[in-house]
Each structure stands twice: as C-alpha cells, then as structure tokens.
C-alpha cells in the first residue's frame, strides 16, 4: 500500500482504501464520477465478502479498463454485449458473482437488446449502469440518454424530439421485465445521494447472492469535460436538469413488502 494511504503514528484511520480497489491512478477526467462508482462497487464487494467470487464484465466506453481499478477477475466484452457475456459467465459458473459495468452508449444504444433480454431471462447478474447523457470516450457525441435540448458534438443545435427522439429511460424499462428482481435509479451528485447509491448497489449484489433474479442500478453521473462545465456546476446540472427527467427511486424490488414507490424526488439545495 502506498505511503499516502497509511495511517501515521498517532493517527486513527477512519477512511480506508478498499482492498478491492487497486491503487492505480485512474485515467478519468477531473470531476468524473466513474471513480466514485468504482469505489462504491469495490466497497460493497469487500463488505459482503463477495470479491473472491466476483467476475466483472468490462464494457466499452470510458470505463473500458475498469479492470485496472477494480481488482477482481475480469473479462472484456465487445461493445454493448456485456450482459450477454455476463450471461455466459454465470451459466458456466453459477457459483460466481457476476456484474457488468456499462455506460449509457453501451447499455442503452448498441447493447439495448442484450441488456433487456438478459433482464427478461432473469439472469442472476448485476448491471451497474452509469448514465451521464453523453458519449465520453469518443468525444461528447449524443447518447441514448441525452436530454432534449442538450448540445453534443453530434447535436450541435441541441437534441430535438422531431429529429433525434427523446432520452431512453433504462430503470423504467427494466422494471417492466419479468426477470428483474430489483431496479433502482440513484445519483452521484451529492454525499446523500452517493450513500443511497451504495445502499442500492449493496442491495443489488445481495439479491444476486440470494439468486432472486436480475438486479440493476442506474447511476446518474457527471461528465464535466463533455458538458463543458466545472465539476460543481456539473453536480448542479444533475440535480436541476437530469433528475427531473430521470427521477430517482426504486422502480422494482421483489423483496419489498409494500408496493415500490419513488423514494426520492426531492431535489437537494445547492451545495
């Protein structure tokens, strides 16, 4: 472990580095939320003691080398096919804990069919879906989740309903499928939401470990670079522009006693 991460004499360590998270410095841009999402997944795997059984399916997008940061056995998937690859892994080794980590282009555009059908079959896998409304790695083009009016490098006038159609709502779609045990949308814009996101990820993995079905967590995330704004303003955009279109909450939970409700529509005050 690097010196920076160790407690010095007289110090009490209260914020440790999860062993499942490698010490590599990520390639992500300043203010990007992938690092937070990685950490949440790593902490949950450690806490639930699932890391030694975990197999990650890495997807194509900014998080393509997520296996350099999350220290679990991993296989790289062709663009969009992560849920199909994860299906193969889980069918071959039902004793493992299998998850995909996918962006909005990977899961909501090129891989929509594989994602929805793995969910419909109720594959015992977990999909972590990072939605930042833009193609990051290729330079800020329109994503399936791009908001109406949002300018990208391929919607220079802003996304128009009549030409580009509207944003794809993954959590809502997932919730309609019989094989889905759990679908929740969370956000990484604030500490409170990040904590709720970790609870959701924990629940998703627990549901897989219990063999209850497909579990899905959508994480609304910031992309300051391609949004052309600083990280603080990016967090504000998530709250003011994204959450109204992509409401947070539990869309499906077969373990809940009561009918699932949209738990968190409250927009926090500016930080």
């Amino acid at each position: 472990m690097s010196e920076l991460l160790k407690a010095r004499a007289g110090e009490k360590l209260i914020f440790d580095h999860p062993s499942v998270l490698s010490e590599a410095v990520t390639h992500y841009c300043p203010g990007c939320h992938h690092g937070i999402a990685h950490r949440l997944v790593a902490e949950v795997l450690e806490e639930l003691e699932l890391a030694s059984r975990a197999i990650m399916v890495a997807s194509v997008g900014c998080s393509v080398i997520s296996y350099d940061y999350i220290s679990v056995d991993s296989v790289e998937s062709p663009h969009g096919r992560a849920c199909a690859v994860a299906t193969g892994v889980k069918r071959a080794r039902p004793d493992t804990i299998v998850f995909t980590y996918q962006g909005d282009g990977d899961m909501g555009a090129i891989g929509l069919a594989e994602s929805l059908h793995a969910a419909a079959r109720g594959e015992h896998i977990t999909a972590v879906f990072v939605n930042n409304t833009v193609y990051g790695m290729t330079g800020g083009q329109m994503a399936p989740t791009t908001l109406l009016g949002q300018k990208t490098t391929t919607t220079p006038m802003g996304r128009r309903m009549e030409l580009e159609g509207g944003p794809v709502h993954m959590a809502e779609m997932m919730s309609q499928l019989a094989g889905v045990a759990y679908a929740e949308r969370c956000s990484l814009d604030s500490v409170r939401h990040i904590r709720a996101a970790q609870d959701a990820i924990r629940k998703a993995f627990s549901i897989q470990a219990k063999g209850l079905g497909f579990s899905f967590v959508e994480l609304l995330s910031g992309c300051p670079t391609n949004w052309h704004m600083d990280p603080v303003r990016a967090n504000t955009r998530i709250r003011e522009e994204m959450i109204p279109v992509f409401p947070l909450g539990v869309y499906k939970d077969i373990t809940a006693q009561a009918v699932p409700v949209i738990a968190d529509k409250v927009v926090e005050g500016r930080s």
Binding site: V75, R81, A84, R91, A113, E114, R121
Partner: peptide, 26 residues
C-alpha cells in the same frame, strides 16, 4: 449443462465468450 436460446447471434456468441472465459467447454 446450460442451454440458452439467445435473442440474436450477437448475444449467443458473446455468451460463448463469457462461458469460455471461465474455462468451460462451450
């Protein structure tokens, strides 16, 4: 063993990739 009728040939061959990555004859 495990049989899956996939939603497409794309999905089928990627399931093969996943199973094969586990060293299972598939």
């Amino acid at each position: 063993g495990s049989f899956v009728q996939a939603e497409s040939e794309l999905a089928a061959v990627n399931m093969l990739l996943g199973a094969a990555a586990c060293g299972i004859p598939a």
